[in-house]
């Protein structure tokens, strides 16, 4: 069953790749840092015209924050336990694993010399910004999209993943386009997500929009026939498909965006350090290895997703 599912997913993701891939012609994981990383050093300050890819230049110097982390001996990372292949609790091992967790461990290794000197805190979606602001966590690696709205309160690293919005529908709906997936249908989104904002801005012909705490709750409703379609970030859409071979992603990805590591605006030393680690991971193939391990089966070739 697993292979059949994977075959389908690869096909779906390749389709997605075709659409998203335009922006990453040089995304072969070469050693050169990406353009965004070389961007001039503007602090992550709020601006009227905000560039989501904008962050501090990569540098590894120990400042107040990193000194504090080293003194503590452990890196406190806000994570998710419910995003399949990104951050989820493996019931066999009891460990939280996934693409975001690989990054968290890499950061711990770089900062403290040991990938396991890490404290994982599960932070509910609505509390993410607050947790970073009040210092409950050092950083958040949790499929978090960089938005100008969030940048007013917290800082982000340079992007480490490109995302977009995608619709997920039951295969039985035989939809082929975004319009076919949403028009005249009952849609489901996660509360306070970009998807919810988008459907508020443009309903895409939906007859109703159900906003739930998590996009995974949408998959439950979809399986039970209470909603017809889910609109969510592409990586979470892929995670839904990975958990239920009877649903599929349809239509073109739209509203491209970036995922970043969220940090406190005051922790400039940490922000620069994380940016260096992100650049190194892309340069030395770790990003690609992690992608291949967790995501290739469900999302296909990595090129469309490289920032």
């Amino acid at each position: 069953m697993r292979t059949a599912r994977s075959r389908f997913l690869v096909a779906a993701a390749v389709l997605a790749a075709g659409v998203l891939g335009t922006g990453s012609a040089d995304g072969a994981g070469g050693p050169a840092p990406r353009a965004a990383l070389e961007a001039p050093a503007a602090p992550a300050a709020p601006a009227d015209t905000c560039d989501p890819t904008d962050s501090l230049p990569p540098r590894q110097t120990v400042g107040a924050k990193i000194a504090k982390i080293r003194e503590r001996g452990t890196l406190i990372v806000g994570v998710d336990q419910n995003s399949y292949h990104w951050g989820f609790r493996n019931p066999q091992t009891g460990r939280i694993e996934g693409f975001d967790l690989d990054l968290a461990h890499a950061l711990a290794k770089s900062l403290l010399g040991d990938p396991d000197r890490i404290t994982l805190k599960t932070v509910p979606t609505p509390r993410r910004v607050e947790a970073v602001k009040n210092g409950e966590v050092d950083l958040i690696a949790r499929t978090m999209t960089i938005t100008c709205e969030r940048k007013k309160d917290i800082a982000f690293s340079v992007p480490y993943f490109r995302v977009a919005q995608r619709a997920v529908v039951p295969k039985a709906a035989h939809a082929t386009t975004l319009d076919g997936a949403l028009k005249g249908k009952r849609a489901c989104v996660a509360q306070t997500s970009s998807s919810e904002a988008e459907l508020k801005r443009n309903p895409h012909g939906t007859v109703s929009v159900l906003a739930l705490e998590s996009q995974l709750d949408c998959l439950v409703r979809m399986q039970l026939g209470e909603v017809d379609a889910t609109l969510t970030d592409i990586e979470l859409a892929a995670a839904q498909v990975a958990q239920d071979p009877m649903v599929e992603m349809v239509g073109e990805p739209f509203l491209p965006a970036y995922m970043g590591v969220a940090m406190n605006q005051n922790d400039t030393d940490l922000i620069a350090w994380v940016n260096q680690v992100l650049a190194d991971r892309q340069a030395d193939g770790s990003w690609r290895a992690s992608y291949d391990h967790w995501l290739r089966d469900t999302m296909g070739a990595p090129d469309p997703y490289l920032p």
């Binding site: 336990q81 419910n82 995003s83 399949y84 989820f88 609790r89 493996n90 019931p91 066999q92 998590s214 995974l216 709750d217 998959l219 439950v220 409703r221 039970l224 958990q243 239920d244």
Partner: peptide
């Protein structure tokens, strides 16, 4: 049943 397959979806079902 879903949880036994190791999928986070199981937790979503239980919450539902």
């Amino acid at each position: 049943a879903v949880d036994r397959q190791g999928l986070p979806l199981g937790g979503a079902y239980l919450r539902y």
